[in-house]
Every structure is written in C-alpha cells, then in structure tokens.
Amino acid sequence: MSDIITLADDPDLAHLVDLIDILPRPEASRFWDEKGQGDHSIGAKIGHDLKQILGGQGRPRDVDYFAVHVLKYLGRGNVYISEEKITQNLRGVHGLPAAGRAWVEDATRTAWRLVTRYSLARWRGVTSTPGSAWMATR
C-alpha cells in the first residue's frame, strides 16, 4: 500500500479540490492575502499542501493539513475569509447567497471527513483501540 494519496484514491479529496477551484485563483491576493502576509498567507498555506497532492506526492499528512486549512480559513464560522466574502468571489454564481452558504457547508463537511479519516488515529493515539477508554471505565 502506497503512502501517496491522489485525487483518484479519495473522492472526498477530489471534491474538495473541485470546490477550491471555484474560488479565486491563487494570485488573487485580495481574496487570499488581504493582510499582505505573502508566504504566510492563507493562499500560500492551502497552496503548499495542494501542490504536493496535485503533484502526485501527497501523503496523508498533506491531505490532513490541506483539510485543516480549509476548515480553519474557509470553513463555517471561521474569522479569516467570511462566508460573505466567499459568496462574493465564487466564480460562476454571481454573488448568489445560497451558493456561498452551500459552498461553505459543503467544504466544511468534506474537509472534516478528510481530517477525521487521516488524523483520527493520531488524535486517539496510535496504540489505542477505538473505544478502549470506555471499556476501561466502570
């Protein structure tokens, strides 16, 4: 089994990349880098992981980081790129509020599935059996 994950390997990953593709392109600094952070911008953080994945070198950690960055910076209730800003900048939907809301909800759900798929064992502890903490309690 390969540690490399491609879009063909994970339909949720492919879907999240499709969602990112209808946001402004990476060079749209007013969307991705509003505070002039350059290499530390939201676009740079998302782009770093995404380039690994799209370049055929994405590992579970890259997918996890990509999904975490989507949750943190574009997901529901984030404080970085608001739902309104996403709505205004979605390509092809012309500022339709329902489309922006749906994009945020879909991206949040999809990113969360990826994070739990690729991080859950690490969060729980690699030596832990699922649910084992509950079996040890009275």
Rank of each mutant, 00 (worst) to 15 (best):
R91I: 07
W123P: 00
Q57T: 07
V70Y: 05
D9S: 04
R59P: 01
G77W: 06
L54C: 02
H94L: 06
G131T: 11
T108D: 03
R59I: 13
G77F: 07
A133M: 14
I42Q: 02
D64H: 11
T129P: 00
N89R: 09
R117A: 13
P26S: 02
R138C: 06
D3Y: 14
L23C: 08
G92C: 10
G56Y: 08
E105R: 15
H69L: 00
L13C: 07
Q57K: 13
G92D: 08
S2Q: 11
D49M: 07
L23W: 09
Y80L: 00
V93Q: 03
T137D: 14
G38N: 00
A44L: 03
G58H: 10
A121H: 11
S119K: 14
W123V: 15
R91G: 08
P26Y: 03
A28F: 12
M1H: 11
I86Y: 11
W32Q: 03
G95L: 07
P24L: 01
D12L: 07
L96E: 12
G43H: 05
W103H: 06
G92T: 12
E84L: 12
L90C: 08
P60L: 00
D9Q: 09
P26R: 08
T108M: 04
W103A: 04
I20G: 04
I4E: 02
K51A: 00
G36E: 13
